[in-house]
Every structure is written in structure tokens, then in C-alpha cells.
Write a protein that binds this DNA or RNA. Structure first.
Length: 408
DNA sequence: CTGGATGAG
DNA sequence: CATTCTCATCCAG
């Protein structure tokens, strides 16, 4: 799927793979096919053995074959870099919203509280030793003059959140919301417009931020990702600027060829900064994480199971054999875990559903039998209806890809 | 179709 | 006192 995701414009305008790269790719492909042959030979050998011993040879499925191939040579599996993804992460979201709503808070240490918990704080507070999230009493101990705003009512945060997403959506419809303060933007379709000499320098940070990473000399890949990601850094900057202009909110951005890396690097330089990472740096990014738990997609449950298998660092996960993982996870998950450990992520940016808001005053319109939303439909349901019913209505569960296209 | 698991914020 | 809640996705029953 990812392989055919680039559109014609990008194809036209991006530089073609260099000769060196084409050769490297051929080399890789050859190795891959070689491995394939080896595995098949192995299997035939095993079957012959079985026959010799009078045992009926077991049938080896293609799936099993690919699993075996991947076993030793995971890195040989081609990782494509056709997409360009931006992950946008708002700086201390709630605190910023409050500071925009009341500018007098700007230069004061500010904490947003919910119940007994300070859920976030502004950077003034953080510079004075207050952590992101703390118990109120602990925060006050550190900073007696900390100003608190109650953040139990999410209405304003939702409004700002949709505004921010709307800015991104004005660039491309391919925007996926993640919570209230994060957005994935797949800019593959529009990044071609920014590939030009005018944008040849990288905007913002490069992961690692060494001078050598900035130099355009040598293109380690040649598939065009260098140009696309460079252009992407300019687009990311533009999106961030626009967000700032229209909402007064600053944010960070990460630019990469997949969601995983974009998200991992977006917070690398904070606040109000951005970072691009190139495919050949994927290993460095992953190694910069110690625990496998800090990989998005590996939650507490999965991590516990990994620990059972004596796997807790990213590196241990990289080195874990598929068969080991397979003892506790299904095959797809096992592969997925290995992919993640190498910074490989084919996950698509999915257009998020309708403007979020779950407030009590909200009414819903739904089409009675259609599987897609149609806001022009007349059916009107008082929001009073059970939450559950609302949720059911607004998420027409698994949308067929076709229906998804109609969503915007 | 639905409830439980899982994960993110 | 690492809490509680909301939301999305996946899948087995």
C-alpha cells in the first residue's frame, strides 16, 4: 500500500534514484532472492529427510516461508521511503490555550489542574523546576506562587484543537488527529511543490543535529527521500507558522517517511521547534530509546509480555528471533514488533472523523442506513441520548476504504 | 454487531 | 496518590 502512495506529481518532480542507489537496490533485491532460494532449499532438504525417515513431509505454507526468511535477515526486507509525514505536537497544550485566552498569564508560572493533579504546566513554570505533571501539593511545594487554572472543562481545548487541525487540513485533507494536541499530516501529495532550489536547505533541526547530517553532499538513499524530507521540513515550518498566526499556539513538528519516526523525533527539540529525520538515521533514533516500552504501539501489556521473554530494550527486541516472539504473539504482531524496533512503520495516516466534541449540547445528525456520515441529513438526535449511542453513531465502525474517501 | 483488550493522550 | 477518563482500533464470539 505504501509503495503506491506517491502521486504522479511527486513522481515527476522528485529526483530519480541515482545510479548508485539503483545498484544498491538491485544488490538488496538479489540478496533477498538469494535468501528466498536458500529457505526453499532448506525446506526441500527437510522434506527429503522426512521422507527418508518414512515420515510424511509437512506442508510448508507461504506464510511460514516468509517468516523463516525474515528470521535472520530482517534488514533485507525492503523499506520504502515514498511518503512524507509530519507529526505536529502542540507545546503544553492546555497551558497555551489558557495563555492565549488570558495573555496576562504568559509570563507567570502556570499550572492547569484537574482534581488534585496538575496535568500540565507552561514553560515558565517548568523553568522553575515544576514538572510536566505533578500532584498539586508537590507543585505548590516547589513553587508557592504557581498560578492555577482549572482545566476540567475541555470545551475551549476542543475548539483550539479543531482549529489547529483545520489549519493542517487547509494544506491537505490527509490529517489524522491523535488526542487533542497531536496531528499526523501526510504531505506526500503536496511535498513536490516544495522541492526546489529555493528550499534546498533543511528547515529546523536534523535529528542528531550534527553538521554532517545537514550537508547535502552524498545522498545515502537516492530514492528521492532526501529531497522530499527537506521540502517537508519547509512545509512543516509553514504549517506551524500558519497555526501560530491563526490560533496563537506554538507547536513542534517531526518530519519523516513514516508515522513512527515522525512522532519519535517531533519532541526532540522543544518547545516551538522542529526536527527532520532521514531513513538512514532510523537506527540511531531507535537506539536513542532505551526501553522498548517507549516505542509508540508498545503499551504496558505488550511490554509485560516482552519482559517475560527477557526482552526490554529496543536492541533486545531487534535481536529477538521471530520464533521467540511467536511463542507469545501471533505472527502479524511478532513482525510488527520487529518492524517497530527497526523504525519501520507502514501505518497510514488516516483521515480523522468529524470535528470532535462530545459536549452535552451537541446534537447529532446521522443517516439512518448509510454507512457514511452525511451532515446534510435531517435526522436530528438530541445529545441527551446515551453516550454509548452517540459513540456508536459517530463511528460507523470499520469503514470500507471507499466510504473513507467520502469522509471529508 | 458487539464487548473486551489494547494503547494513546 | 502515576489517577481517571475519553477515544480509536482490532478481533473473537
Amino acid at each position: 500500500m505504501g509503495t503506491k502512495a506517491f502521486n504522479s506529481k511527486v513522481l515527476k518532480e522528485e529526483s530519480r534514484p541515482s545510479i548508485v542507489q539503483r545498484m544498491e537496490n538491485q544488490e538488496r533485491q538479489k540478496k533477498f532472492e538469494q535468501k528466498q532460494k536458500e529457505v526453499e532449499k532448506e525446506i526441500r532438504q527437510e522434506q527429503r529427510e522426512a521422507l527418508k525417515q518414512g515420515i510424511r513431509p509437512k506442508f510448508v505454507t507461504n506464510k511460514e516461508k516468509s517468516l523463516r526468511m525474515a528470521e535472520d535477515e530482517w534488514a533485507l526486507i525492503p523499506d520504502q521511503h515514498q511518503r512524507t509525514i509530519v507529526h505536529i505536537d502542540v507545546d503544553c497544550f492546555y497551558a497555551q490555550v489558557e495563555m492565549v485566552r488570558d495573555p496576562s498569564l504568559r509570563d507567570k508560572p502556570l499550572g492547569i489542574k484537574q482534581k488534585n493533579l496538575m496535568v500540565t504546566s507552561n514553560y515558565v513554570a517548568r523553568s522553575m523546576g515544576v514538572k510536566k505533571s505533578m500532584w498539586i501539593k508537590d507543585a505548590v511545594k516547589i513553587l508557592p506562587n504557581l498560578v492555577f487554572v482549572d482545566g476540567s472543562d475541555l470545551t475551549h481545548y476542543r475548539q483550539f484543537s479543531t482549529e489547529i487541525s483545520a489549519v493542517a487540513q487547509s494544506f491537505t485533507p490527509n490529517v489524522e488527529r491523535l488526542g487533542l494536541d497531536e496531528n499526523y499530516v501526510d504531505i506526500t501529495d503536496i511535498v513536490g511543490d516544495y522541492i526546489s532550489p529555493e528550499y534546498s536547505a533543511i528547515e529546523g533541526h536534523v535529528f542528531g543535529d550534527k553538521e554532517e547530517d545537514r550537508k547535502v553532499l552524498g545522498d545515502p538513499c537516492g530514492c528521492g527521500c532526501l529531497q522530499r524530507l527537506t521540502a517537508g521540513s519547509h512545509l512543516a515550518k509553514k504549517i506551524r507558522q500558519q497555526i501560530l498566526e491563526t490560533t496563537g499556539i506554538t507547536c513542534c513538528a517531526g518530519v519523516a517517511h513514516n508515522k513512527l519516526l515522525a512522532k519519535l523525533v517531533s519532541g526532540y527539540y522543544k518547545p516551538n521547534q522542529q526536527t527532520v529525520v532521514f531513513p538512514w538515521q532510523a537506527h540511531d533514533v531507535m537506539e536513542s530509546l532505551k526501553q522498548a516500552r517507549s516505542i509508540p504501539g508498545i503499551g504496558s501489556t505488550t511490554f509485560k509480555i516482552l519482559e517475560d521473554l527477557n526482552i526490554s530494550t529496543v536492541q533486545e527486541l531487534q535481536n529477538a528471533s521471530l520464533s521467540t516472539l511467536h511463542t507469545r504473539f501471533d505472527e502479524e504482531t511478532s513482525k510488527r514488533l520487529k518492524d517497530l524496533s527497526y523504525g519501520i512503520d507502514e501505518g497510514l495516516v488516516r483521515k480523522s472523523g468529524k470535528p470532535q466534541s462530545i459536549g452535552l449540547e451537541d446534537a447529532f445528525k446521522k443517516t439512518s442506513k448509510q454507512k457514511s456520515w452525511d451532515l446534510t441529513s435531517q435526522t436530528h438526535q438530541p445529545a441527551k441520548g446515551r453516550l454509548k449511542q452517540k459513540v456508536k453513531e459517530r463511528k460507523p465502525q470499520r469503514l470500507k476504504p471507499k466510504a473513507l474517501l467520502n469522509l471529508m
